[in-house]
Amino acid sequence: MEPFQIPSSSMRPGLVVGDFILVNKFAYGIRVPVLNNVIVPVGKVGRGDVVVFNYPPNPKVNYIKRVIGVAGDVVEYRNKRLTINGKAVPDEKDGTYDYLEQGMAMIHNDQFKEVMDGKSYKVLNIPDAPVVALGQVADFPSRDQCQYDDNGFVCKVPAGHYFMLGDNRDNSLDGRYWGFVNDRLMVGKAFLIWMNFSALSRIGTTIR
């Protein structure tokens, strides 16, 4: 296990700024140091898992997002609704969620409950915000596997890679902007909040 701290709001409402989390680095297999190839398989990365990985444009930086697609999946996010391989991910409205961003601006969101491969979790979106800021989409590897328009995007996940999104869908720098995560960049599966000095009630919360 290894501890990490949440630095941004991209995974709200499940994870908030200041959460210290535990990550199981063996959840997806025992890996060779440096190369990070799996030598002893233990478990597979699954859709809906919350994972820590090395940020593809700068592997020295750790990111945390939710796995939305695995190799071969066709991921489509259009008009704020998610489909995987042509099948809509079940979601239902679950009230609203407001939070103060960097102590300056109150952000109002609609909250939804999504269910993916038996995993239930909550996501946020701002109704009037664009699905993707097209001007911020990078020219990432396998970019030709994605198509973008004003209403959203569709991507086919290459072999040996994953597609990630933040749960705070309109406030997350994620796979729609920088592409796919190679399996060699995986660090582990997040599973527990062990400390938040500003919100002690969050201690011991399981990460869904």
Rank of each mutant, 00 (worst) to 15 (best):
L134R: 01
N109P: 05
F53D: 03
N37M: 15
L124H: 14
L22M: 02
M116A: 06
I207C: 01
I203M: 03
Y97S: 11
D98A: 05
G166S: 01
L185M: 10
G18C: 03
V132I: 03
S8C: 12
N24G: 03
G14P: 00
V67Y: 04
N168L: 10
L200C: 14
N109L: 06
I107W: 02
K80I: 03
L100R: 15
L173D: 11
Y63N: 11
V181F: 05
D128R: 07
I21T: 00
I203A: 03
D128T: 09
R12Y: 13
Y162M: 11
Y121M: 01
F163R: 09
T83S: 15
Y177S: 03
D19I: 00
I39M: 14
N171F: 05
P33I: 07
M104E: 14
V137Q: 08
W178M: 08
L124V: 13
V45P: 03
S9G: 15
N182F: 03
V38R: 05
K113D: 10
G135M: 15
Q102M: 15
F53C: 07
G175V: 07
F53A: 04
D94W: 15
G179V: 01
D128A: 06
L185Q: 10
N36I: 12
G175F: 06
R31G: 14
F20A: 03
N24S: 08
A190P: 00
V157K: 10
P127N: 11
T205Q: 12
D167P: 00
M11L: 07
D98V: 04
F140L: 09
D128C: 04
A71H: 08
Y28Q: 09
V187R: 02
Y63F: 12
N24I: 02
R66A: 06
W178I: 07
P90M: 12
M104S: 14
G14W: 00
V23W: 01
H108V: 11
E92D: 11
